[in-house]
Structure formats: C-alpha cells, structure tokens
Write a protein that binds this DNA or RNA. Structure first.
Lengths: 161, 161
DNA sequence: GGTAGTTGTTTCGCACACGAAAGTTTCAGC
DNA sequence: GCTGAAACTTTCGTGTGCGAAACAACTACC
C-alpha cells in the first residue's frame, strides 16, 4: 500500500484549510441553533421545519437523507416535535411500512415565522467574494470533495473482504 | 438594517459550496470515528489521545479549546477515558483550581499504535490539487471565514443591549 | 485581611447522533 | 399461497455536546 507523502512545506497550508472548513461548519451549526432558540426550537428541529415547508410531506427515510442523519436519530427528533404538536406522523396507505411526516398547522405557522434560513449568512458572505473567487472556490472544493470520495471508496472496497 | 440580497443566479453555486463544506466536514468526522473504533476508542477520545501525545500535559480548559468543545463536554470525555485507564487527572500544585490531564502508559501505547491521523486523507487529497489551486483555496476560504466572523461579531454587538 | 468578582472545573438536564437488534410490511421467486 | 430476503421504522444502549448552576480557588481592590 503505497502512501503518498505530504510535502512538509505544505503542511501549514493544509492545516489552515482544514481549520477554515471546521470553523465554517461549526459556525453554521451555532447560528442555526441560535436562530432556532428564538422560536423555542432546537437546531435540527428548525432544519426539519424548513425542509418540510419546502418539500412538503416526506417519509422518515427521505427526511433522514435530506438532513444527513440516521433514521434512528430522526425518529427521536420527530418524536419530540410530535409531542410539541409541530409535525404529525401518518402511515402511508400505499406502503404501510412507510411513515409520512407532515407539518401541522402550528408547524406551518412557525415555518412562516422564521424567515431567515441560517444558511443565509453564508450566502451573504459568499456574495462578498468576487464572482471569480466564488467560481474558483466551488471548482476547487468540488475537486477536493470528489478526491476524498474516491479515496473513501477505495478504502472501503479494499476492506470489504 | 440593510440586508444584502443574494443574486438568484448564484444560488445554486452557493448551495453547492455549502454542500461541499458539509460533506468534507462530516466525512472527516466519520473517518476519525472509523479509525478510532479499530482501537477501541471513540472519535473524540482519539482526538484527545493524539492531542496529548503532541502537546503533552494540558489543563482541562486548554484541552477544551484545542478540541473545540465546552468544558462540560470534555469533563465527560475525560471521565470515560480515565475509567479506561488512558489518561490521568492531577491537580496543579501551582494553581489548585487547575486540573492537568496526562496520558498514562497505556494511553501512550495507544497513541503510538494509531499512526495515521484521520486528517491525513485530506492532506493527501489536497496534495492532489495543483499548488495554485491549494493556494487559491486557502486564500478564498480564509477570506470567507473572516467575512463570516465579521458578520457574527456585528450581530452579537448589535444584540447585546 | 476581608470581600467581591474572576477563573477553572464539575454537575445536571436535555437533545442529538449512531449502530445493532427487533419488529412490521412488502416483494420475489418458486 | 409460502417462504425467505429486502425495505422501513423503532427501540435500546452509549457517547457526545451544550448551557446553567453549583462549587472551589484565586486575585483585586480597598
């Protein structure tokens, strides 16, 4: 297993890039949480409310994909939101394995009430970049994400047997 | 409070950038967790072990800063690691409020055993980028992070009273 | 030298977050 | 029509992760 070596002179740059990504991500979570708490919601709950407002009824699995969490996690989030009267569960009549999640009237009201999506602050920050910078950033990040994806796939297939 | 508006034609790009950042961050966490579990550790525990190996004895507060978590969170992590015999607590003799965390012999062994830092896969992915791309990425991400930092500061000072 | 405020840590209560296992329902193939 | 595999959801156990409050030790200031 040949292991490529990172040129030592690039190490500080690499660490700085990783640090910037971590900062941007954690700050995004913190902001979501802050906006949510003003309306008596938690971060993930606000994400769910906005997702259901945008996309309408969703199965639990579909909702899990959308918010990038495991089903078992979302079950808990939906449990608490159901208890608060924000969403309702309904067994699908077409496929009775499926549970559809919908916003209640109160859930809709809350969704309307919270106008600013937390991602907004990133949109504004990104707009402050020049058009060229934004394009470069997307191009490079995409390349980077694809390379990581590739590596992860390799690792996993290599370890399967 | 003038609110800048995101040009609609940039929305897809912005969302793609955010998505890439989220992907890179979550994948990084998943990889850490995976590497850690091969040695009977959790993700944060591996992070702590490597941090203490690199920096030596650290106070709980300093350790919290380093791994970007609250003191109350790290107290729990250290509790479990202490129970497993990986780290030890020791009251500072200089300032008796301070608790110093150190690796035990077993902790050191584990640190030596786990050679690959999870961040490594990013280093390798980044090396695959051209030098120019890496420099551009760092430059733009830094600019972006600073702009977000600025916005967050503004929000907080505006809301203080 | 006493006290008021600060700093450092822990405790508590709650909400994720995940994987494994269990419980339903559906579907494919015979 | 039966059966085993697959799809969907929940349950369970454990480990973060955070904020508020409690607690202990230190420092400033008078």
């Amino acid at each position: 297993m040949p292991k490529s070596v990172v040129p030592p002179e690039m190490k500080p740059e690499v660490d700085a890039i990783v640090e910037a990504i971590v900062y941007l991500y954690t700050e995004s979570r913190r902001l979501t949480k802050e906006v949510a708490s003003r309306h008596g919601l938690t971060g993930p709950q606000l994400t769910v409310v906005k997702m259901l407002e945008t996309l309408g009824e969703l199965s639990l699995s579909r909702l899990s994909e959308k918010i990038r969490a495991q089903n078992s996690t979302v079950t808990g989030i939906v449990d608490r939101m159901e208890r608060e009267g924000l969403v309702a569960r309904a067994r699908s009549t077409v496929d009775r394995r499926v549970v559809q999640i919908t916003l209640t009237r109160r859930g809709h009201e809350l969704a309307r009430e919270v106008k600013v999506e937390p991602i907004q602050i990133f949109r504004e920050a990104l707009v402050g970049l020049s058009r060229d910078d934004a394009k470069d950033l997307l191009r490079i990040l995409t390349k980077l994400a694809n390379r990581v994806r590739q590596m992860v796939d390799d690792t996993q297939t290599r370890e399967e047997p």
